[in-house]
């Protein structure tokens, strides 16, 4: 494909000379197809096809390496009555809900703080980004060690301060484990949200604030009526990403708890992995993965229609 296009043949030809091939080359639609080819190949072969295949697999009893037979809805029926599956759904919703809300709150607050004038601004912003840059797995390992049941630095510090008398069992107790992994997820997600919102804040024209100050608006009023509405579109995008990637998180859980204790932190993604790759039940694992799709679609639609419309309404009102 590349050599065809590379051929530097100028289109300075007399009309009569134009061959079918030349027309094809110049034709916008055909050229478009050529240009789209690599992307289409990747996305069709490694994204669309597997996506369809996954849905198909969820209707079969496929095991690792051997093809399955069509068994209809049996995998779903089995999951419907499987308490571990429902637990993982609950965990996933809890994990996504709590982590996304807190990430957003802290992220917005941090963005507002960073938007103020202060010395060493650039360095501080770069530092804030670090948790986002470092590979998740590697920081998860650090958290794993921080949450160790015997040698946790947090337990040690709290003990020295006299606040607790026994080590906190971070990853061994159901709720402790859930809050611990959520905390790690928040820690990891805040910088992305903060920096993105910060950039959004900087597009807000200072003149608006000046006008508001002259009108005697309070800080909260300014935030509520100027900052927030103008930020809405970027909030929509950021939160869609944040919710989606929290919902489908795998790495943090896999490294820190592998779904334990007693499945208390299993997310749908990790349970799918355990059943499909660990246990070898590809069909059942695919059914779990497929069951995530409706949730994701719902999240996308909510953010798309909910927030987009508000942005549009806002725009209208402002104009």
């Amino acid at each position: 494909m590349a050599d065809i296009a590379l051929n530097p043949r100028p289109a300075r030809k007399r009309i009569g000379d134009v061959t079918a091939w030349q027309r094809l080359k110049a034709n916008r639609n055909w050229l478009g197809i050529w240009f789209m080819l690599p992307t289409a190949a990747f996305l069709l072969l490694f994204l669309a096809y597997p996506l369809g295949l996954g849905i198909w697999l969820s209707f079969t009893d496929a095991r690792i390496g051997r093809g399955g037979n069509f068994i209809g809805l049996e995998n779903y029926e089995w999951l419907w009555g499987d308490s571990v599956f429902w637990l993982s759904v609950f965990n996933t919703l809890l994990y996504t809900g709590v982590a996304s809300v807190i990430k957003f709150a802290i992220g917005l607050y941090l963005a507002l703080l960073l938007n103020q004038h202060m010395p060493f601004k650039a360095i501080i912003r770069a530092l804030v980004l670090i948790p986002f840059i470092v590979p998740t797995v590697l920081s998860a390992i650090a958290f794993w060690w921080i949450y160790d049941s015997q040698f946790s630095i947090l337990s040690w510090s709290l003990k020295k301060l006299g606040l607790i008398s026994q080590n906190i069992d971070f990853l061994g107790d159901f709720w402790n484990a859930r809050w611990s992994v959520i905390a790690a997820n928040i820690w990891r997600g805040v910088p992305f949200i903060a920096i993105t919102l910060l950039a959004g804040l900087q597009t807000v024209s200072p003149a608006l604030y000046e006008a508001a100050t002259i009108d005697g608006a309070s800080r909260w009023q300014m935030f509520r009526h100027i900052t927030y509405p103008l930020l809405t579109p970027i909030i929509a995008v950021v939160m869609t990403f944040s919710v989606l990637f929290t919902f489908t998180d795998f790495q943090l859980i896999w490294v820190m708890t592998r779904g334990g204790p007693v499945n208390a932190t299993h997310l749908m993604a990790t349970l799918g992995y355990q059943r499909a790759i660990g246990g070898g039940y590809l069909g059942e694992g695919s059914a779990i993965a497929t069951a995530m799709i409706p949730f994701l679609l719902a999240a996308i639609l909510i953010s798309w229609f909910g927030l987009q419309r508000r942005k549009w309404q806002q725009g209208e009102a402002n104009d």
């Binding site: 049941s149 015997q150 040698f151 026994q166 080590n167 069992d169 990853l171 061994g172 107790d173 484990a177 708890t257 592998r258 334990g260 204790p261 007693v262």
Partner: peptide
């Protein structure tokens, strides 16, 4: 001792050797 619900094969070695 609290925490055994999260133990994998390594945890008891570590805890025993540390005298926990």
């Amino acid at each position: 001792i609290p925490g055994t619900a999260s133990w994998n094969d390594a945890f008891n070695n570590k805890a025993f050797l540390a005298g926990e």
